[in-house]
Design a protein around this nucleic acid. Structure first.
Lengths: 341, 341
DNA sequence: CTGTTAGCGCCTTCAC
DNA sequence: GTGAAGGCGCTAACAG
């Protein structure tokens, strides 16, 4: 295959020399422009012989397109995000785009650094779930990029398209279900108001009570860090208190882990002693014994929607510049809730 | 901030003009070379004023380094891989490298396409868990790249460093534990011989019997696809047969999902009716009721080891060109196994 | 310490 | 349909 004995990989010039044509002609072959059959064969043979691989960096330099998009999230090892990444990658790779993934670890400063880095890398687009919507820093950074942005479940007043999950309506479905089972005292443990998911879940929770003609139990709306530790601590507190709620809703898959730990530790039986609903379809929810009822949304759809909007923008669509796409939530009833009598 | 009214972002030339110095000087400032304080201030002011962001593509073109590494795996949404990706990203980003992630979906053809793509992108290095070690195609592709490669738990006769998990020794620990509990009839459900994990788990399983002076129960070494469906089918078959084993080992986290489904479906009690051990520490193992005993390895360490070796190679280390680094496995005893009487 | 200049590999006019 | 030449933005000599 390879011919050259020099160290550096062959360039388009080497191919041209080998084939006895000009570099322009080789470029045309590379880009599928029309050339004579004779020349086509000549060039392809030369490419084979030299083991030539076009330099995408040089192509990007010239065409001003990297065919790469960035994905910035808190933590790629969170199954929710890795699921979205998977779906996004599938869609993008079909269109010959590559995915640059970076985790912020909930660090706003790092988040800004990553965006700057992707900006310098001249990615063609960015999908991002900002760590904190109230951080003015990230907003001003995002306002100063040249490429289209898709926001994952975040509400930011910047020029970007958004994918929004219908957390509130999902929460209402869950509460209606619990109300129908006779539950009065339901607690929600979820993230704080710094990002949409926690805020919307809390909103849906409150509205469900109102719409049902009940008073909103403010002491049962427990918001904080969207992680396992917080779920564990708050669940423990609930379970230790004299008036334990009859049902708990885990507002996030990490929160669920924490709650489950607290449940296990006290030998609380689900659903006999406590009814439990979680948000997001993850392995543990379906495989747990009993299987856990969840408010679910289609993660694959999230990735596809993000990819589609982004690709459209990259290809020059400038219409409806602040589009919002909603992802439906549904209640998947399993065996973690029991009627209260 | 930004000043220019033209559409394209400012270049180093614009900065130079604005600061009243030469491009070479601006470049020196960008790269932290020594310049006079006066000039430094001038240049930085100009950069601020223009909102200048160095073009990494042009830098890569010139320096022949992209500061990007590729990660190729079956499926980024598999918690094992996303955990490795996370750890890798953490290490790499500390050194200002970015991570290009792509999933092959177990498709060898696609795998080759991805490697070619990363080759064209001129990544500085590659971490890859090849889909099928016996695929000659991927080997010849990998032999023809210019950058260092780290193999994740794969045995390939190519010029690359490898991280190998000690599956066999972990398996022996598990069996010794089960033997001590009095189990005689243990079945293993795992992947086939096309990649190291399945092969090594089967080897460890067999050797554990031999070392214990027992005959290897070949009909209990069940190898096939490393996915949930296979786990489900094979577990179902075991459970339906007249002589059900007293213990089952799930050789992979996906396999475990399938086995759990089969268990649930038949209301088999763990560990009363069946003892269960799984490979790999994942959420479901620890959170399940009862918590499942696992053969675990440190995923974070895998990512770190891969990052470290790769960075060393990128920085020109040519010693010991086929290094192998082993990752220890340990048995984390929980509550999914009971003594047999 | 600073300015000038020659490419890195490719695509894209512009002639022919 | 093909060749020649300019330049994308940057860095690394080389002079001064």
């Amino acid at each position: 295959m390879a011919d050259k004995t020099t160290s550096s990989p062959p360039t388009i010039r080497d191919v041209a020399a080998q084939a006895g044509v000009s570099v322009g002609t080789v470029s045309r072959v590379l880009n599928g422009k029309s050339v004579s059959n004779r020349v086509l064969a000549l060039v392809n043979t030369a490419i084979q012989k030299l083991g030539y691989s076009p330099n995408a960096v040089a192509q990007s330099m010239r065409t001003k397109s990297t065919r790469a998009v960035g994905l910035i999230i808190n933590d790629i090892s969170n199954p929710l995000f890795s699921g979205i990444a998977k779906s996004l990658d599938d869609c993008l790779s079909e269109n010959e785009y590559s995915l640059l993934i970076a985790s912020t670890n909930n660090d706003s400063r790092r988040e800004r650094v990553i965006v700057e880095s992707l900006k310098q890398r001249r990615v063609d687009g960015l999908v991002i779930a900002v760590t904190d919507e109230r951080d003015e820093g990230i907003k001003s950074v995002l306002r100063n990029v040249e490429f289209p942005i898709v926001l994952l479940d975040r509400d930011l007043d910047i020029s970007a398209d958004s994918i929004w999950d219908e957390h509130a309506s999902g929460m209402k479905k869950a509460l209606r279900y619990l109300f129908d089972l006779g539950h009065q005292d339901v607690a929600l443990i979820t993230g704080d108001d710094s990002i949409r998911p926690g805020r919307e879940r809390a909103r849906g929770f409150r509205e469900a009570f109102k719409e049902n003609g009940r008073q909103v139990p403010e002491n049962r709306v427990i918001q904080g860090r969207l992680n396992s530790q917080f779920g564990y601590e708050e669940a423990s507190r609930l379970f230790e208190s004299s008036n334990r709620p009859s049902a708990v809703i885990a507002g996030g898959n990490q929160i669920l882990s924490g709650i489950l730990r607290a449940i296990r530790q006290r030998n609380i039986r689900v659903p006999e002693d406590l009814s439990l609903i979680s948000c997001d379809e993850v392995d543990i929810a379906a495989l747990m014994d009993p299987p856990i009822t969840v408010i679910s949304r289609d993660i694959v759809q999230v990735g596809q929607a993000a990819a589609n909007i982004l690709l459209r923008r990259i290809n020059g669509d400038v219409s409806n510049s602040h589009s919002r796409q909603f992802i439906a939530t549904e209640l998947v009833v399993r065996e973690s809730c029991a009627p209260l009598h």
